[in-house]
Write a protein that binds this DNA or RNA. Structure first.
Lengths: 253, 253
DNA sequence: GAGTGGTCTAGACCACCAC
DNA sequence: TGGTGGTCTAGACCACTCG
C-alpha cells in the first residue's frame, strides 16, 4: 500500500479504500493471515477520517475477507474447510458398522466431541408437517453441538415421534454403536432413504456465538428427513459453519 | 417501539438497539416488508447519536433481516425461495425429454431467461484437475446468467474439454433440445452420474451486482462434475442466490 | 419541500494486546 | 506504555422518494 493515495470523486471514499484492499488480497499481495494496514496508516495514506477507513474495513469483514482482532489489527482471513460430508456417510455400511455416523468423514487423528441434550417436546408445526403427524404431537428431540479439535462445527436437532423413540436408546444421550439410525432399524423401522434440503443464510447472534463464527461467515442449513418405506421417522435440522464444510452429493441419472 | 427506552450499561448501545429491533421482527410485531422506525425516531427513542442507530440498523442488514431503501426507509426483508432444485432435474427423463434441464423445477407461468457466452480457454488448474486433463488444456466454457421473471438467480460456468465439445452444438450458444447432457450422450459419452460439492460464502461485489443481492445474503456455490463410466466430461461451477433457492438432494442408504 | 437514508468529519474515551 | 481496534458524539452535506 503506497503512501498518500488519491481518491476519485463519484465513488464513496470508503468503497474505494475497500476496493484497493480487496485487490491486494485477491492478487496475493496480502496473503492468508497477513495484517492489513492499521486504521492509523489508512487515515494517513488516504487522508480521510477514521470512521471512513473503519467503514472500508467493515466492508471487507462482511465479505468474509478479513477479521478484526481487538488490540492486534485486521487480518486476511484464511478459509480452511477441513471436513467434508459425503453421501457415503449415510450408507448402511457406515452406521451399520457401529461407528457414529457423523464421524464418517473425520480423520482419525482429530478429537471429536459433542454436547447433547435430549428432551421431549410438542412438535412445532413445520416439524410435525415433515413427520406427517398432527401438530403438537409429542416428539423426542436430540440437540447436539459437534466440535472437532475444539472447533464447533455444527448444531443439530433431531426430532423423532415420541411413540417411536421413548423407552429406547434413542431417547438416551448415548444411543450406542451406529447411533439413532442403527437403533431405528433394530426397532423395526428399516430406512429407505433420506431427503436433504439445503439452504444458506447469515447466522443469528446465538448461532454465531455457539459456532464461534467470525463476521461475514454464513451458515448452511440442512433439513434431513429419514424415511422408511411408508413414513418419515426422523427430521434433523442441522446448522453448519459454512467455513469448515464442503457438502458432497452424488447423483445418478 | 415505545417512546424513550433506556439502555443498560455493559452492552454496546447499538447492539441493544439491534436486539430490540430483532426481537420485534422475530416476534412478528414487525412483519415482512414492514418499515422499521426511521433513524430520526430511533435517535429520539433511545437518546443516542445518529451513527449509533445507524450501526444498529447495519447489524440487522448484515444479518439479512432488513434492507435499507434510500429515501424510503429500512424494511423487514422477506425471504421467498420460490424455486427448488431437486435431484430429479438431473434425471435422464428430464434432459432426455428435450426440456432444458435447468427448467426442471420452474413453474409453467414463469418467464425464464438466460444470457450466455461461449468461449474457448485454457483450463485453470482446479478445472483441469477435476476434468483429469493436463493443466492448460483447451476447454470450451459456457457462461450463463439465469433469471426468472427478471430476477437473476444463478451464474454458471460449464467447462468441457475442447476435444469433446468443439465442432458440436455444445460449443454453440444454443445446444438444442435437452441441452449439453443430451448432446453428450449423442456424441458417445453416456453419463453415469454427477457429483456436487456445495459450499456457502458471502458474494464478491461482482456477484452481488450480477445477482442483485441485497446486503446480508450469501451465495451457495456448487461444483458439479458430470462423469461417464471412465472419465469426467464436464465441470460446472455454479453460484446461486441463496435467498431464492432450496437445494434438494435424495440419498439412498 | 419534508422526510428518508448515505457519506464524511474531527474529535473523545475505552478495551485489548504486546513489549 | 504505545499501538491497536471498539464505541460514541454532534454536527455537516448529499441523494433519493414522495406527495
Amino acid at each position: 500500500m503506497a503512501r498518500s493515495r488519491s481518491l476519485k470523486p463519484g465513488r464513496p471514499a470508503y468503497q474505494q479504500i475497500a476496493d484497493e484492499l480487496r485487490a491486494s488480497i485477491r492478487s496475493g499481495e496480502l496473503g492468508d493471515g497477513d495484517r492489513l494496514p492499521s486504521e492509523t496508516e489508512l487515515i494517513e495514506t488516504f487522508g480521510v477520517a477514521r470512521m471512513t477507513v473503519r467503514a472500508a474495513l467493515q466492508v471487507l469483514q462482511h465479505e468474509g475477507l478479513a477479521v478484526a482482532e481487538h488490540g492486534r489489527g485486521v487480518f486476511v482471513r484464511h478459509r480452511r474447510p477441513f471436513r467434508r460430508r459425503s453421501v457415503q456417510r449415510l450408507s448402511r455400511a457406515q452406521w451399520g458398522s457401529g461407528r457414529a455416523m457423523w464421524e464418517a468423514d473425520t480423520a482419525e487423528d482429530r478429537t471429536v466431541s459433542a454436547t447433547i441434550e435430549v428432551t421431549r417436546e410438542r412438535a412445532a408445526d413445520d416439524i410435525a408437517d415433515r413427520l406427517r403427524v398432527p401438530p403438537g404431537t409429542d416428539v423426542v428431540v436430540r440437540r447436539r453441538l459437534h466440535s472437532v479439535d475444539g472447533q464447533p462445527l455444527q448444531l443439530s436437532a433431531a426430532h423423532l415421534p415420541a411413540e417411536i423413540a421413548v423407552g429406547t436408546p434413542i431417547a438416551e444421550p448415548d444411543t450406542g454403536p451406529g447411533g439413532t439410525y442403527a437403533r431405528l432399524e433394530e426397532l423395526g423401522y428399516p430406512l429407505e432413504g433420506f431427503v436433504e434440503e439445503v439452504q444458506a443464510r447469515m447466522p443469528s447472534p446465538d448461532e454465531a456465538r455457539l459456532l464461534a463464527l467470525p463476521t461475514g461467515v454464513p451458515v448452511i442449513t440442512i433439513v434431513r428427513v429419514a424415511h422408511t418405506s411408508d413414513r418419515p421417522v426422523e427430521v434433523n435440522e442441522i446448522v453448519v459453519n459454512s467455513d469448515l464444510y464442503v457438502l458432497e452429493y452424488q447423483i445418478r441419472p
